[in-house]
Design a protein around this nucleic acid. Structure first.
Length: 272
DNA sequence: CTTTAAACCTGGTCGC
DNA sequence: TGCGACCAGGTTTAAA
């Protein structure tokens, strides 16, 4: 499902809808296991707390509560967070509901690669999930130089880009797209990039993520905003999902290959 | 150490 | 219409 832009859009939507609201109750609907077990007492612990902040880190959504707890949510491949009014009837794959005065926050995830858990705010940065995460693309410290430092082995650049210990938020779509605009083949060794290529890649990662956020993210199958509305950035893909179609730059056919079990798309004429 | 593959899941699509 | 194979915005674990 979602990469950085999609998670960012979800956070924006959540802020608009539930920031400052008091949690009246919560319900753990299914007993099915997600990426981790949902903590047994989560509903009780979050009830009566106020939502004081909502922040994204990597592809995680952090909902900060007034009682110094943080609801941590990851959407996996197929997760959705939707705001529904309190007359909402539960659907298949609804796993967790947070109830407010006049609305519900519903976590739905068919494939159950997602995560919902509770962490103490003081332990957030030390928590195993966050301890080793790499740089945020919109952090001022994210520079071409940083990329150079992190691309120190001969791993294919596409895989290095998707490595969350190096750089967070870039997944399968935006890795392919940012390499296209940087004219770099996804198979290139990450430590073979020239300075001007690192500069281009750094620029294009930020640019593409920004553009996608402006268009509400990319909606392929599952992803939707908290309102249920779709994003539009998928209409502006240059390579992702365009196997066999003409390169929008040179007209050559877009190629699909597999890297570490994931599809990569690129133009062999434009990307070297 | 790095690198690759498999595992976790459901649901949609495609070919026979 | 059915069935099997394969695919999907991610992350973690085990194996090589």
């Amino acid at each position: 499902m979602p990469e950085l832009p999609e998670v960012e859009i979800i956070c924006l939507g959540l802020r608009e809808k539930i920031l400052g609201d008091i949690i009246l109750g919560a319900e753990h609907i299914t007993k099915l296991k997600l990426r981790q077990e949902v903590p047994i007492n989560i509903s009780k612990k979050i009830t009566n707390a106020k939502i004081v902040a909502i922040e994204r880190r990597a592809k995680y959504i952090q909902i900060f509560l007034s009682n110094n707890l943080v609801i941590l949510i990851h959407l996996g491949m197929s997760g959705k967070l939707l705001i529904k009014d309190s007359s909402y009837i539960l659907q298949k794959h609804d796993h967790f509901v947070v109830k407010f005065n006049d609305k519900w926050l519903v976590f739905n995830d068919p494939r159950r690669f997602g995560l919902i858990t509770l962490i103490e705010e003081n332990n957030l940065k030390k928590h195993p999930i966050f301890a080793k995460l790499g740089m945020e693309p919109f952090d001022a410290k994210f520079t071409p130089k940083y990329l150079e430092g992190v691309f120190k082995n001969k791993q294919p650049i596409k895989l290095a880009l998707m490595d969350n210990y190096k750089l967070v938020g870039v997944g399968n779509i935006y890795a392919s797209e940012s390499l296209f605009f940087s004219k770099i083949s996804p198979t290139r060794a990450s430590n073979s990039l020239e300075k001007k290529e690192l500069i281009a890649l750094h620029y294009n990662i930020k640019k593409i993520l920004e553009n996608s956020i402006k268009l509400g993210g990319s909606s392929l199958k599952d992803y939707a905003k908290v309102s249920g509305e779709k994003g539009y950035f998928q209409n502006f893909f240059y390579v992702y999902g365009r196997e066999g179609k003409d390169c929008r730059n040179c007209g050559a056919k877009i190629i699909k290959i597999k890297q570490a079990g994931r599809a990569s798309f690129y133009c062999a004429d434009c990307q070297k």
